[in-house]
Design a protein around this nucleic acid. Structure first.
Lengths: 244, 244
DNA sequence: GAGTGGTCTAGACCACACG
DNA sequence: GTGTGGTCTAGACCACTCA
């Protein structure tokens, strides 16, 4: 039987699986089960809360999916050893981000044409050297201040109409989301200098540190696009948060 | 009705909820349900797969948690509109990361002492100005090459024994994971120059672009620690991937 | 009222780990 | 063998939305 000394305002109103889940979460938060400690079994929680096993199972399964506990069949449930921390980093569409701040987004298109892919680029796009690719170079501004230089190659097979889009009013990111079946992407984030041309387009000193995101976006079978996004370090940073 | 209990490890003896889930995932991947489209109801899936409603419910609920579908009570289940893309960025413990590459991790402690917090720092830690805080400055090396300069302040109330740890053999990150009840954290990632002192400790040109992560880690009620992690841009980058 | 998802139950069979 | 988690069932009641 549970002690009644713990204050919990609308405890009774919550769904049973949520009551179990929150009981466990507060225990974890309070350090009642340090990392690696054995937590109550399903059977114990069943009798403690007077609910069915499916219900406590759901609570525990969700905690497991959220990374808060580790479950081992035949052994038990353990408080998660938070050795790796993963977080949700939002890489939003820049136009959306700027407009959500109530500022004005502008884009100037410095290049938009088909090209022949050199060997290295073709390899990264999964195409034969010399294949036709679409190339755009766009500078995005927030209230007039250059914020991102976007150098992008697109696989024509995935977005045949890409070059016809009006990139002063729709970002390539948004266009590709709407016209392709995005499946997954990889990216790297690094700090380096811009190329001289990028520095000129961004209006910065070539020595200024820049935050550079390189992103490769794929369908299940093919590479859609390869983008290099250069941001002046003094004007842009990424942020995020996580809960374990 | 087969009552045989012989396990057949090879074949499509997949759990029913996984069969339903994978059916839906491949349909989404193939574009069978474009973003926003109405997907089969639970009842339809029940009769189609010959499983109980709880089973298809679990499949759908997991897809919802993974952000692949949107469910509205009384209306139906819809293919998710992938408007914002969020990704899992792993910020691993540096020692673990280095060792997983098969390299040697070394740490040199350049500072480890209690201090009085100035006003700004105290504010960020949620303490009164002049409060005692722990301060460490540690350089981490991979096979001898400086990779990170870690400047960290710790709230003594959360980790009283912090300064007694041997930071040449356990990273502050790992120590704090083991000794505190981490609840959440915020971070920013930016590109900038190191301070002259950091540049000297890292053995780099002060003009070199650096990837700088500032992380604030909290329990539910208090700030545990504030860390500034400076990485030479030429030696370190972050990477990750996401699936929608 | 009909259809949808949200949730719970009481029991069941299984695979697994450990003593 | 005992205890653990992993999963499934067949039904049930509810809240919600929409016609």
């Amino acid at each position: 039987m549970a002690l009644r000394t713990l204050p919990d305002p609308d405890f009774a109103a919550l769904a049973p699986f949520l009551r179990v889940k929150q009981f466990l979460m507060s225990g974890l938060e309070a350090g009642r089960w340090p990392a690696g400690a054995l937590m109550p079994s399903e059977a114990e929680l069943v009798s403690q809360f007077g609910v069915s096993r499916m219900t406590v199972n759901r609570a525990l399964r969700e905690l497991q999916l959220e990374g808060l506990v580790q479950r081992i069949q035949g052994v038990g449930t353990f408080a998660a050893a938070l050795h790796r921390v993963s977080s949700t980093l939002t890489l939003r569409d820049l136009q959306e981000e700027i407009e959500s701040r109530g500022h004005r987004h502008q884009a100037s298109v410095h290049l938009s044409r088909p090209e022949r892919a050199a060997k290295g680029l073709a390899g990264q796009l999964g195409l034969a050297p010399g294949s036709r690719v679409f190339h755009t170079l766009i500078v995005h501004r927030e209230d007039g201040l250059p914020l991102q230089c976007e150098d992008r190659f697109v696989n024509p097979a995935c977005a045949p109409g890409y070059l016809d889009a009006d990139f002063e009013h729709i970002t390539p990111t948004r266009y590709l989301f709407q016209h392709t079946a995005l499946w997954q992407a990889q990216y790297t984030i690094e700090s380096a200098r811009a190329t001289p041309r990028e520095a000129r387009l961004l209006g910065i000193d070539p020595a200024e540190p820049c935050l550079i995101v390189v992103r490769r976006t794929c369908t299940r079978d093919a590479v859609i696009t390869l983008a290099r996004l250069v941001h002046p370090g003094s004007r842009y940073h990424l942020s995020g948060e996580f809960k374990p």
